[in-house]
Write a protein that binds this DNA or RNA. Sequence first.
DNA 1: TAAACTGTATTACGCGGATAATACAGTTTG
DNA 2: CAAACTGTATTATCCGCGTAATACAGTTTA
Lengths: 132, 132
Amino acid sequence: MISFDRFIPSDSSPIYLQIITYIKQGLAAGIIKPGEDVPSRRALSALLGVNPNTVQKAYHTLEEEGVISSAQGAKSIITADDGLIRSLKGQLLDDLSENYVIALKHMNLSKEDALAAVSRLWDEMSDKEEIQ
Amino acid sequence: MISFDRFIPSDSSPIYLQIITYIKQGLAAGIIKPGEDVPSRRALSALLGVNPNTVQKAYHTLEEEGVISSAQGAKSIITADDGLIRSLKGQLLDDLSENYVIALKHMNLSKEDALAAVSRLWDEMSDKEEIQ
DNA sequence: TAAACTGTATTACGCGGATAATACAGTTTG
DNA sequence: CAAACTGTATTATCCGCGTAATACAGTTTA
């Protein structure tokens, strides 16, 4: 069963998209594995404090993309294969990096500034993790 | 007069927020300077293909933040001072970098992976710019 | 078998973002 | 001065996201 302990909702994008991204990132990270079952629509909606229809929208999209598989009455499970996971990982990384680099270029920062900022933030956030 | 030639609209966030970010990033980059005047609500709405009310919403927010100044009948102008600009630059960079690093950590990537991705994307996008 | 879970579908409502059509007041400029 | 521009405000409408309340069909499980 997939855990949503690390899910941190944000109001800057639709929740159903955040659910989709959370599962894709989990697959890319290797934390979520093929064959695992996802929480039921009702269970996840209760956990996140959202409506069951919102979860259904996320799961329906994931099924169309071949990430999960659903059948009447039974639990939905992760069906993404290794090829799809590799593809997801590359796509997520490239999308994130591209948006990040575009924004920094718009601010007229140098490549060195960018690498320094990532390096600094990475270490700062690693420190915070250790405190927890 | 501020140019919106480099404004690339995206549908992933509200347009009025994209206008705000565009001007803030321009100030941080030094491309937009205090004293310059911004396009009128009507002119910018026609240029971007959006409604005048949408531009008004962006400008109204920028005025509340002390970035621009508006008066009845006259053109609105940039009134951000050096202190505000420095503050904007740091805030924009930290927000972007933090979101980027968080996403990559969720994908279980290493710091080296992150730096390599930024470096690679930076060079790729520099190549594209040269073609233009 | 029967209860309790699953997925799936429908309808109605509220809210924010964006559009559309005006209107009014003040400043610039020919 | 008068026209053409500015900013500002109001009202109505549409759409996507999310909520709310159900209902039905199929599977698990005690």
